[in-house]
Amino acid sequence: MNIFETFFNIPVLIDSFPMLMRGLGITITLGALSIVLGLILGLIFALIRTYGPRSLRWFACGYIDIFRSIPILVLLVIIYYALPFVGIRLSAFAASVVTLSLVSSAYTAEIFRSGIEAIPKGQVEASLALGYRFFPALIDIILPQAIKIVIPPLTSNCINVVKDTALASVVAMPDLLKQATQAQALAANPSPLIGAAIIYLVILLPLVHLVSRLERYLNVSQKK
């Protein structure tokens, strides 16, 4: 067997293609859901950490630090295999979404916070002087500017979330990687794994490229 028959076996790739596509669907669903939940939770924790009363700020700090420190795989295994012992039984899909969202929200919170803190003090003073209250100022003045600043790092984080969905295969989630390993077992040939790798690249390379373009466009990379 030469290297092409081993790793780029076209008949095997064609046979495994439907499986890989099903896996891709799950990977994207898992990624998208975790990204959205992570963004919402992350924004809430960033606001608590920046503006909340002291006790809540502490809580937010602890949350952010813990979920940035713990390896995702460890968290996933705990949520899927350990929580049932205290009666919390999550499906593989739910456990994966919870894990990815928790970790993503911790990173997102730090990103949003850096964006909020990067806004010049004069902007807040101007809104206060005009009579703005907290939430209207947030909506009209703070968040539009903060979000513009953090679009590149947020996009980077989204890429990480999509990549990390591969860990869900550990809890038997039939995502792109799991489907590829099963196809590999069925065909006794590793080509489906190469196929999966190519699919990950096709999805994520444009996003990686987008991040650098956004960074250049928003001129953030030079300022920081």
């Binding site: 010049p120 004069g122 003073e125 101007a126 002087a129 005009l130 009579g131 009209d140 513009k148």
Partner: peptide, 30 residues
């Protein structure tokens, strides 16, 4: 504060709003 107008040394206009919106939005919201 809304009854006390303030003009700053560094203008502090809102950079993400047009000139018209800078002037029109605060009365709408406040």
């Amino acid at each position: 504060r809304a009854d006390i107008g303030m003009v700053f040394q560094n203008f502090n206009l809102f950079p993400h709003m047009t000139v018209l919106k800078n002037v029109a939005q605060p009365p709408i919201r406040v």
